[in-house]
Design a protein around this nucleic acid. Structure first.
Lengths: 155, 155
DNA sequence: AATAATTTTTACAAAAAAGTAAAATAAAAA
DNA sequence: TTTTTATTTTACTTTTTTGTAAAAATTATT
């Protein structure tokens, strides 16, 4: 249950773009605001572009901007894009996508992580960048609301 | 949302001890059963001992055994013991234990992880090694049961 | 006592992840 | 067409995590 620094930086970069109000932002501008190296910001934005989260304009007057409306990009999208094993936030290392667990007989760990991950995915998929650009307090009530609704439906 | 290989190996080692039926098991015996290097098994068991999860008998005829009844050791205990940052399964890297988030003004990530972690902790704290020594199907229904109860109480 | 089998501890090696830096490429502007 | 400023890509460095190996310490047995 860990948010990596890379993911944190990625989120902050995206929030910086949103909060700037500008059409596009360069890696260099972001790096100054966030206190990160330009190359590092560029690398993260490159990963986010490959995931379809930001779009770019190359060359002079170039820069980065959200590929979609901030309402449509979720926390889960961003975390997945910046997860080292790319396709999915990892569950049990014994479970590859589409495969059965090779330890299915004695792997008692899977159901626990399956349930926990399902909830986390649901939570993170229902938080948008727009909402994250607002303050904690607003998010906190939104989180509670999602949780309550989730439990009402699934239980 | 990731279970590290170290944690997986630790869980398997503990389940091996339980399933063996023996009073104690040596690192060498476990390593043969699990196909892991003896040194690696010893290292993991050393970490588990420091966390108070296993006890040991030194010297010849020595070995490892659970420090408490398998009913009383939870999945959460084990994961925490084998988490690289030892005290706690990590949340947001900006939150240190007992401190406020240094990014409190614009850190919109915290509430999401706080809620997800709370649920995961609850889940993992209510699964015991004894239950894990049984089959998946049993665990699955237990997990569902915990989930339902959690939601009924908290919502 | 000496030996053998064990845990304990330390130090090191390998792998993975995170971060840095610089060369290559692209496009606007002078 | 040259220059400037940007993204893109690759390669490398550092750090962290994981795993290996061996020496030290402990205790039962001979």
């Amino acid at each position: 249950m860990k948010l990596s620094l890379l993911q944190t930086h990625g989120l902050k970069i995206l929030l910086t773009i949103i909060k700037s109000g500008k059409e596009t932002l360069t890696a260099s501008e972001i790096s100054k605001i966030e206190g990160l190296k330009t190359g590092y910001v560029g690398k993260i934005l490159f990963m986010l572009r490959k995931a379809g989260i930001v779009s770019t304009i190359r060359g002079k007057t170039g820069g980065y901007f959200l590929a979609d409306d901030k309402k449509n990009i979720t926390l889960y999208d961003v975390l997945t894009a910046l997860s080292p094993n790319k396709n999915e936030i990892e569950l049990c290392p014994n479970i590859k996508e589409g495969e059965n667990c090779t330890h299915s007989i004695d792997c008692a760990i899977r159901p626990v992580f399956y349930e926990a991950h399902k909830f986390f995915k649901h939570l993170a998929s229902n938080i948008t960048l727009e909402e994250m650009a607002n303050r904690e307090k607003d998010i906190m009530s939104k989180v509670k609301e999602i949780k309550n609704h989730y439990f009402k439906e699934k239980v």
